[in-house]
């Protein structure tokens, strides 16, 4: 599951309230060129993540069957580089703290949200995810280069000794 760097940024929205999904989708459609995928069921969103890479996952907290922290923990397992954002109307500090500690949250936002701030958070979340993916692919390039250098060194030593 590798996203090309030139590929359009991909945003996943999860909220059991359709009205919230529609509002954010409309805002992003107007202001950005992102591919936005929205789900009112966290289980369906997990199914999507099993097959498609996204740059950022924005999730509600209070949802039936699976809460936002459980969903983002699953996201982290499936796609470690994806940035995780919690957007919640359930403003209790306990859920904020556990979200930050358990799932390594990128940002915690409260409803009602500010569109300008939401956009800024999503933009930097995308940048972070892309830098991480970039870093990972550079590291693996380095690993490959390193092992082929080792191989050359071994052959050189064998030729001269």
């Amino acid at each position: 599951m590798i996203l090309e760097v030139n590929h359009k940024p991909s945003v996943l929205l999860v909220d059991d309230e359709e009205m919230v999904l529609t509002s954010i989708r409309a805002f992003l459609a107007l202001e950005t060129e992102y591919n936005v995928h929205s789900f009112s069921s966290p289980a369906e969103a997990v199914g999507f993540l099993e097959n498609s890479a996204v740059d950022v996952a924005v999730s509600d907290y209070l949802m039936p069957n699976m809460n936002g922290i459980q969903f983002l923990a699953r996201t982290k397992q499936l796609q470690p580089e994806t940035s995780r954002v919690l957007l919640t109307g359930h403003a209790d500090k306990q859920s904020a703290v556990s979200a930050i500690n358990e799932v390594g949250l990128f940002q915690y936002l409260e409803k009602p949200w500010d569109n300008a701030q939401l956009l800024l958070v999503i933009q930097s979340a995308i940048e972070r995810a892309r830098l991480l993916r970039d870093l990972r692919s550079k590291i693996s390039e380095l690993d490959t280069a390193h092992s082929s250098l080792k191989d050359i060194q071994r052959r050189l030593l064998r030729a001269f000794l």
């Binding site: 309230e17 009205m19 919230v20 529609t22 509002s23 954010i24 409309a26 805002f27 107007l30 109307g89 409803k111 009602p112 949200w113 569109n115």
Partner: peptide
């Protein structure tokens, strides 16, 4: 109440 208010606020701006 907060959820629909959040939606309306955002929609108005958009």
């Amino acid at each position: 109440i907060n959820t629909p208010v959040a939606s309306i606020l955002s929609n108005n701006e958009v």
